[in-house]
Design a protein around this nucleic acid. Structure first.
Length: 305
DNA sequence: ATGCCAGGCACAGCCTGA
């Protein structure tokens, strides 16, 4: 099962990008951020034609998040983070899809710092941690995935000095992210690639993409049972190199099928080492992989075309 | 060193993003 997140930066302005990418990579579940579309302008029918059901929390002009599911309708369980009824920004959406609970996250950027926007970021992160802990306590398989607007460590930025005063690298923002991990969440990319430079975002300006001056700010956090099923992850860098691309690239994870019988700890560990294969979907993905770059680590340089 | 690019709304020029 492939689960992806993509900060699309305007879903209607980039609908053809989204549809093309869905066809090429056939993710089973997709978290989208920055829809920049009100609730009634979400392109539901176009996504239906592409084979995806959807739940979404739209908002005029800014923010907005969605969860797509191939061939099924996501079962929405929550449209906002608990803890602040006055918060109306569309930044969190939760839905059950194929036995997994998906939390689509669009954590506030927080610049400039210090200031009220940074305070909002930290407060939002604290609410996320509280809610995430309650999900862990329920012991369901859960993924928190999306644009966290946090550069976790110096390994996650092309040049730490350039970002040291930015809210994305502020020690309190990094501390908030680390606190989530300490609660039992697994950072999928760092779990499989502890030392590699993997980016998900490149600014539009200063030629950042061509220089590969990127940041890793889009993340997938897995509950313990799902961490054991993690077999692969990567970044679809080709999506970032297209004309009119979002400034983020999609990142994805691949989960092994859930093991038969729940108390199969050791067995499931072995299963996670085995690649998912032999399905028609896997064949389609292989074909897509030849066209695009499946793993972020397979190529250091982007291909500006 | 630096919103230098980009989208949405609305149709000029803000506001926002990271």
């Amino acid at each position: 099962m492939r689960i992806a997140t993509f900060n699309i930066n305007g879903i209607n302005g980039r609908l053809s990008h989204l549809i093309d990418w869905l066809a090429e990579t056939t993710p089973d579940i997709v978290c989208l951020q920055e829809l920049k579309a009100p609730q009634d302008k979400f392109p539901r029918s176009a996504l239906e034609r592409a084979g995806y059901g959807a739940a979404w929390a739209g908002q005029a002009r800014w923010n907005g998040v969605a969860i797509l599911a191939r061939d099924v309708e996501p079962v929405e369980t929550r449209r906002a983070l608990p803890g602040d009824d006055a918060d109306t920004q569309g930044r969190y959406l939760e839905a059950a899809v194929r036995g997994v609970l998906i939390g689509c996250v669009y954590l506030p950027n927080g610049n400039p710092q210090p200031g009220p926007k940074f305070d909002y970021k930290l407060a939002w992160a604290a609410r996320l941690r509280t809610h995430a802990a309650s999900l862990l306590a329920e012991r369901h398989p859960v993924i928190l995935m999306g644009d966290f607007n946090v550069i976790p460590t110096d390994l996650d930025v092309y040049n730490p000095a350039s970002w040291k005063d930015d809210s994305l690298m502020h020690p309190q923002a990094q501390k908030a992210f680390a606190a989530l991990l300490s609660d039992g969440w697994t950072d999928a990319v760092r779990h499989l690639h502890p030392q590699e430079r993997i980016y998900t975002f490149w600014k539009y300006w200063r030629n950042a993409w061509a220089r590969d001056a990127g940041l890793r700010i889009d993340h997938a956090l897995l509950s313990p049972d799902l961490a054991r099923r993690l077999v692969a992850c990567g970044v679809d860098r080709d999506a970032r190199g297209r004309d009119g691309a979002s400034d983020h690239a999609p990142m994805w994870i691949e989960l092994a099928p859930s093991p038969p019988g729940k108390a199969a700890g050791r067995k499931s560990a072995r299963v996670t080492k085995k690649p998912v294969a032999s399905s028609r979907v896997a064949a389609r993905r292989k074909a897509a992989a030849r066209r695009s770059t499946p793993a972020a680590t397979s190529r250091r340089r982007p291909q500006p075309s």
